[in-house]
Amino acid sequence: MELLMFYGFGLLALFAGVAMILSRQPVTSALLMILNMFCLSALYALLDAHLIAVLQLLVYAGAIMVLVLFVIMLLNLREKKGIITKHQASLQVVGVAAFGFFVMTVVSRLNTAALPKSKAASAGFGTVEAVGRILFTDYVLPFEIASVLLLAAIVGAVMLAKSKV
């Protein structure tokens, strides 16, 4: 059952990713990206990361992709020339395909047998309570730094997008 769900959502995620880079309409690309993020969220739930699965939907599919769609519709973009950059397009595709093959080979040859056998997840693994507890104890400094980063991003975005300073 788990394997079936993995293949279902995994192949759908892969299909959405490939269709996203092939699509001519930016809006279609953005919607396919949202589909991809839904599938990844399902995979996170399959891996017992319940909090991250919900955050993936809220932050990525809910906030970030809505912002992207908003910008696409605000700018009213259309592809005038081809969708591929003009510099040696075939060379780019070949090089990237070779890179992809290399990555896949390395990963498939990884010695995952050396890892400890995956046990059944301990009770409460990946729940809001468990993740929140270590977020506010062991990882409290990165958490606080993230708040400063978000503040800087807000100020920076307003400064960049404002028409007159």
Binding site: M20, I21, P26, L77, E79, K81, G82, I83, I84, T85, K86, A89, Q92, V93, G95, V96, A97, F99, G100
Partner: peptide, 9 residues
């Protein structure tokens, strides 16, 4: 990676 290298938008 394919998308970053090949797409122009």
């Amino acid at each position: 990676v394919v998308g970053v290298v090949t797409r122009r938008n």
